[in-house]
Computed example of a mutant assay.
Amino acid sequence: MSNLKICLVCSSLGTTCGIANYTEDLAKALDKNGAEVLLTNNIKNFKHIEEFGADIAVTEFEYTLYPTPDLNRFLNKLRRRGITSAITMHGWSDLSVEENEVIETKADKIIVLNDRFRRRLIERGNSPDKVMVIPMGFRQFKLEERTKTRARLRIPDDRKVVGMFGFFEPWKRFDVGAKAVTLLQKKYNISLLVRSFSKRYKMAKEAEKIFGDVVKSEGVDVIEIGARDMYLPLEKIASVLHACDVLLYPYQELFTYSSSAAIRDGISSFVPIVASDIPFFDDIPDGCVFKVRSGGYEDMAAAISRIFEDEELREEMIKCQREVVKKYSWDNVAREFLEVIGSIIEHI
């Protein structure tokens, strides 16, 4: 247990944003483990942070969330007031020179989600003592019974369903998923279930069009869950994913050194998963995900077919998923977070 006062800063709180979900999950788990937590999305109004009496202010950072001058002023104020500062990095770009300089010179500590990210920052000259790893947690959902969900969605018992979930981004390659399902149509009575939220910027619209063209030209049966401008509760999404036979994540590497919340939610839905074998998924244990080295739709289709046909493999994957979700639950991550934060405050 802990009596630490922790301010979590996330400018996207209350929006359709994975980092906001991460921050809210962490805050709930920290509170459950005895910390006093202040959630704020405002780095310009410093008064409420001072009144709270924070031991540490942890800023959840992604490059689009904060204007650099505002972040610089905020970190300077924390330093002048004697409040320890940490920044949790949810991605990285060497091209963002000005922002990176502020983070690396003004924050007392930098928190990253995986070892690969930590190595990259140390390579840049950051002290190993400054950069620490606290992994992203796995949500624990109350899943609806699979047969009930399939009945509600009017999915026949003999239908194989491949699910894809996440923001509609070009690098998530929903079109590759559609092509993989196309190759399986002759062998299986199969549908592609899609639950995606689109931010509707230019490249996202182009990715949607490419996906739509593949679906139309190949006659793929698509089960679309909710409109793409509607953000559904994760608990509901998890039950829908749980009703699938396989989940597919044919991502392309972005070299942002971040970690995937979408694949964690898939694992927490306890369904066999096929994913690209890329560094982005390095912090996901192999046993609960079938990783495909090439990332091509032909090999994705072959992996899906193997899972369909191999009951023992399916059972082993789901067993591994349950173990991983338990080990890296948000409660356990919060305890690790409190140990790290306590150590930081002692040594600052």
Rank of each mutant, 00 (worst) to 15 (best):
D55L: 08
P69Y: 07
I87H: 00
G82S: 14
R79F: 01
F52Y: 12
N72R: 14
D55Q: 11
F61L: 14
A57W: 00
N76D: 14
N72G: 00
Y66L: 06
D70H: 04
E50P: 01
I83T: 10
P67G: 07
I87S: 06
G53Y: 15
D70T: 01
F52D: 08
T88Q: 13
R81N: 11
A57T: 15
T59R: 06
E51S: 12
R79A: 15
L65P: 04
D55N: 15
A57E: 05
P67F: 02
S85M: 11
E60T: 09
T88M: 08
V58H: 02
F61V: 04
I56S: 08
Y66P: 07
I56P: 04
N76I: 11
N76G: 06
T68C: 12
T84N: 12
I87M: 06
T68P: 03
P69G: 10
R81W: 12
I83W: 08
I49P: 02
T68D: 13
E60C: 02
F61D: 00
L71N: 01
R73G: 01
E50A: 01
Y66W: 01
T64L: 10
T64K: 11
I56G: 06
P67T: 06
F74Y: 13
T88S: 04
E60G: 10
T64N: 09
E62P: 00
I49H: 10
I56Y: 05
I56Q: 11
D55E: 14
L71A: 02
R73M: 13
L65D: 10
T84I: 11
D55G: 15
E50Q: 14
H90S: 10
I49S: 03
A86G: 12
R81V: 08
L78P: 11
I87G: 01
H90N: 11
T68H: 03
I56M: 00
F61R: 07
S85L: 09
I83G: 07
S85R: 06
R81S: 15
T68Y: 10
L71M: 01
R79Y: 12
F61G: 00
L65A: 13
V58N: 03
F52L: 13
E50F: 03
P69M: 06
E60K: 05
K77A: 02
T68L: 09
T59C: 04
H90M: 05
L78G: 14
D70E: 14
A54V: 08
R73Y: 07
A54T: 01
Y63N: 14
T64F: 02
R80S: 14
E51T: 07
K77S: 15
E62V: 04
R73V: 04
V58L: 12
T59P: 00
E62L: 00
R73A: 10
I83C: 04
V58A: 02
G82R: 10
I49K: 08
D70W: 10
F52A: 06
A86T: 08
A86V: 04
F61E: 02
L65Q: 09
N72H: 10
L71K: 02
F52N: 04
R79N: 11
N76S: 12
R79E: 12
V58W: 00
